[in-house]
């Protein structure tokens, strides 16, 4: 495989984590414009762990993910009682606070003769774990997809359990869910924690694959895209947001067919889909139709 293709695939994989993060909250009926903050927290924390503390990659990714989840929990305590536009505003405000805090964050130390660490607006450079340990781009890409597959598998299993169905019921009508014995606040809190952790994991991978991260890497555009991926790809299954990422990065960005006009095409696509298919291409109806077709084919095959 050539380097360009591997880079595109890695990008798709990493952005998918943020898309899934926004998707989890969309299922619970909350629109967050702030999932990029947890991506950023995961990136900085995991980067600091490997560079400054010499942690192994697995531990650093896990720690970054947990830190992002914890931050999401704290933000959740303050914001989850809000709904609709108020929740969206509060999450966006928090994400901007985090981005600006990252611009002010300086933590430099001498590591092996080179001064490294986050350096305010200049960001955090030389996160050389993969380089130092001689991973090839293909291997790092495989690491991204192994982790993405794990997260996807867990999400697909959870969606079929009581907890997953409760999440969808809350998303559709929180009051009705409450009347049916569902503790809406605690389910939303669990969703927020999980969403933060998933975004943080993606951030940790991003920092190591790109070898640097800067406050700009997690500005509002990342959050807006993350939301749009679920809305384009569909909210009927966890594969929906991944499809959204594929369409945007895989088709629009990487082939450069709409070079220079990509954001116009992307915005138009979102607008058209919101009108004709408000819950995305793979919405609940499409998913149940596909499931039925698969079942029929399997039965016919027996």
């Amino acid at each position: 495989m050539d380097g360009y293709l591997i880079t595109i695939l890695s990008n798709i994989g990493m952005v998918s984590f943020v898309a899934l993060s926004a998707y989890i909250l969309l299922l619970s009926g909350q629109i967050s414009f702030g999932q990029q903050a947890y991506f950023g927290i995961g990136a900085y924390v995991a980067g600091i762990a490997t560079v400054m503390w010499q942690w192994p990659l697995a531990g650093a990714l896990l720690f970054g993910s947990l830190a992002a989840g914890a931050a999401a929990g704290l933000v959740g305590l303050a914001t989850l009682r809000l709904s609709g536009i108020y929740f969206a505003m509060a999450t966006l405000a928090f994400a901007e606070i985090m981005r600006i805090a990252a611009e002010l964050f300086v933590y430099r130390r001498d590591i092996g003769g080179i001064e490294s660490g986050p350096d305010g607006v200049d960001g955090f450079r030389d996160i050389r774990y993969f380089f130092a340990n001689e991973f090839s781009p293909l291997e790092t890409c495989l690491i991204v997809y192994a982790l993405l597959a794990t997260v996807l598998a867990i999400l697909c299993i959870i969606e079929r359990t009581r907890a997953g169905r409760m999440l969808r019921q809350i998303g559709e009508d929180p009051l009705l869910a409450e009347v049916h014995g569902i503790n809406v606040m605690s389910v939303r809190m669990i969703a927020a924690l999980a969403a933060g952790a998933v975004a943080g994991l993606g951030g940790g991978l991003y920092a190591h694959l790109m070898t640097y991260v800067e406050p700009k890497s997690f500005d509002i555009m990342l959050g807006v895209h993350a939301l749009a991926y679920g809305l384009i790809g569909g909210l009927g299954t966890a594969f929906g947001p991944i499809l959204g990422v594929l369409i945007d990065i895989g088709l629009l960005e990487s082939t450069r067919i709409f070079h220079g006009y990509r954001m116009i095409v992307f915005g138009g696509l979102v607008a058209v889909l919101l009108i004709v298919r408000p819950r995305g291409l793979l919405d609940e109806v499409a998913v149940s139709r596909i499931r039925r077709a698969l079942r029929r084919r399997r039965d016919a095959g027996d």
């Binding site: 009581r162 169905r165 409760m166 969808r168 019921q169 559709e172 009508d173 009051l175 009705l176 869910a177 049916h180 014995g181 569902i182 819950r279 609940e284 149940s288």
Partner: peptide, 20 residues
């Protein structure tokens, strides 16, 4: 007030949640 985007079966399943 129903969960309009859920099936009839899934709507009834909601009540099972209370039992759980």
């Amino acid at each position: 007030r129903l969960f309009g985007q859920l099936t009839v079966w899934q709507n009834l399943w909601v009540a099972e949640n209370a039992r759980a």
